[in-house]
Design a protein around this nucleic acid. Sequence first.
DNA 1: TATTGTTATACTCTATAACTATA
DNA 2: TATAGTTATAGAGTATAACAATA
Lengths: 142, 142
Amino acid sequence: MSRIFKSYGFITGKVEQLFEMEFSQKLTPYDINVKQYGVLIKIDEKPNSSQKEIADELKIDRTTMVSFIDHLEALKYLTRTKNPQDRRSYCLTITDKGKQILEDCWSTLEQSEKKILSPLSDQEARLLKDLLIKIFKNQEES
Amino acid sequence: MSRIFKSYGFITGKVEQLFEMEFSQKLTPYDINVKQYGVLIKIDEKPNSSQKEIADELKIDRTTMVSFIDHLEALKYLTRTKNPQDRRSYCLTITDKGKQILEDCWSTLEQSEKKILSPLSDQEARLLKDLLIKIFKNQEES
DNA sequence: TATTGTTATACTCTATAACTATA
DNA sequence: TATAGTTATAGAGTATAACAATA
């Protein structure tokens, strides 16, 4: 086996590439990319968040966030209203259409994930996720 | 916990981001990026490969490969010689300097990996790699 | 006619700096 | 003075199309 597999970074990147390719293909009909899908989830979970709050949580540049929100607003997946408490910022809220898209996307993406994870048993898949979350949570704290 | 963690794709991407950030920082002094490091490994393992062979294996566009090889050649990490059997293509071989760089990079990157994987036990880390390789190998066959 | 490598070009994604309006 | 959002712009990184040399 190639020496390249000695590297966790390399193999993680390769598997990520599989998800990325599948996801971006599946999201094309909804006219959003993977990061914009993530933004929509966050707004659904924390209604009235500002652009900066979402940007910080997902590590997206605030200028990039502007174009993301412009796009999602144009698609009527969310609404921007001025925050009365601080008129510099917006309150972002997901629309019914946005909620529907989120459900549709999720069921489609879940199928993609199952396909990619097919060589693993259910137990192995759960274990994989636990290990990845452990790594992610650890650095989030530091 | 955020719904976003339901997605294997998302969490895999986040962990990949950790490796990517660490790796690209560590490779900066060597003036190469992560993909170019991968190219160098492949040439070390399979001397006299052509640009196309490397490109296919690593799923890199052949026009992108030209600039990668230009760069690695300028750094004297590899040499290009015309293939006598097929003068359309090059035989790529790593130089002694390139081999040294590869060793240096690997020991540096290994430290980065250990840092990122620190929340896992040795056994868990090994398991994680096995699971990822299982996924990658599966799609490579199909 | 097909393939390897090259070049010019364009496209996507993202970041930097300067701006506005509010605080 | 500092912050949220915006705009114009520039920079990676990569891909498309047309080309030369060789098969």
